[in-house]
Amino acid sequence: MTQTRSLIDENGKRTDGRTGDQLREIKITVGVIKNADGSAFIEFGMNKIVVGVYGPREVHPKHMALPDRCVLRCRYHMTPFSTDTRKNPAPSRREVEISKVMREALEPSLMLEDYPRAAIDVYVEVLQADGGSRCAGITAASVALADAGINMRDIVSACAAGKVDDRIVLDINDTEDKEGDADMPVAYMSHLEQVTLLQLDGVLNEDQFDQCLDEAVKGCKMVYEVQRKALMQKYFGNETELKEEQ
């Protein structure tokens, strides 16, 4: 790997001034698209992603419908202006793959058998891309699905961890993704304690792998708190705490 500069300085700070176990700033707004059944907008560091969920609705073309459960269709798409050089709006190999892994990351959380012969469409539109847009997309999509009122076992949170300058760090950004040694996006259901997505780009030894996964799961739990707060804010206003009474 051609590394031109150090990605972690002598104070342990990374290129964007974060420490090794710090997430980028996350902001989620729920219900931004009026025409969709559920929607969310996420700012995950420099990522800006809007997600619209439609459904359960009738399946078109009809032959795609399944008799025993709902079809989940995901589309991850990057707008032409989301990167510094223009991105061709046609779906690329990468986008098709991310759409697939996103669908597989969200599917275990949904109770698709409750809506047989129907379809749920999830559109993930990346307005501005920084590293980790698939994690941000999954995070926002899960919030949008909850907003759409689809039966779910849990909310999926996603976060990446990776290896930079031989150190395991949380939430890899664009520079670290390109110049670092490894990137591991993880999607996780906090209550069920189950991993729904685990990818790895780079080389890690066994200890590093364990450490990386632990770090990513820790990150997912932090992301979950933001997701929960965003949903609570939309539906219950400032009463974000569980209110219990007789």
């Binding site: 959380s109 909850a146 849990d154 909310i155 209550h191 609570m232 219950f236 009463e239 219990e244």
Partner: peptide, 14 residues
């Protein structure tokens, strides 16, 4: 009878 209520999101233990 006693009824307990709270605000929940998917996945919350009631």
């Amino acid at each position: 009878q006693e009824i307990r209520r709270k605000y929940v999101v998917p996945g919350d233990r009631i």
